[in-house]
Amino acid sequence: MAETITIEVARYRPEEEGEPALQSYEVPLNKDWVVLDALNHIKDHVDGSLSFRWSCRMGVCGSCGMTVNGEPKLTCATFLSHYAPGPIRVEPLKNFPVVRDLVIEMTDFLEKLQSVKPWIVRKDDPAPAKGEFLQTPEQLDEFKQFSMCINCMICYAACPVYGLDPQFVGPAAIALAQRYNLDSRDQGEQERLDVLSQHEGIWGCTFVGECTEVCPKNVDPAGAIQQYKLAATKDWFKSFLMPWSKQ
């Protein structure tokens, strides 16, 4: 018999139990397996009722974020062998309501994302047939990093400000707002600033930096938040000192 490892999975079935509880399984410790493979092994061969989200198994769809031994992780990019000899504890992402087992509720994020207008805003609207907007590789570089977000919610799970105040727009949504602000094709920075400054939560962020630390795609949302704060402060001074400058 090959080596095995114990994996403790948080189970919560709202129709059956009032509180989540851990359940242990033994799974083969295959060196090529990621945590997600172990969960699939359980689902396919041990307990078909275990529920979790996944799709691409290549770290790009953003479905499979969970808490592994206390840390938020993409489970399709987290190897079992890293935790040998175990046990490994797998729980749903923190700071979100749990729907079932390892499945969390994230419509809150989608609403916040929509509220920051994550699309190109143009005052003029030249027809695409006229050709592309020119953008040099350097200009692309300005926002590229913030465009790499896969919406995996791992930064939200690591953010204490979001945990304490769910009103906080949060790391990824701000990073994506900043992604468009920095895009040379966009003209919507002011609109986004107006929206974001209505959210009190942002000033609650005093640079914990965990979001950047845990982000699997090196998006650096903490950087985006600080950039945004600077912009908001400048904007405030401008409208305070020169109220006529803003229409």
């Binding site: 020119l134 040099t136 590789p137």
Partner: peptide, 14 residues
């Protein structure tokens, strides 16, 4: 491209 897809670019911006 007009909707914001970050296409890779030539040095001249095309």
């Amino acid at each position: 491209e007009h909707w914001g897809c970050p296409w890779s670019r030539e040095p001249d911006g095309r």
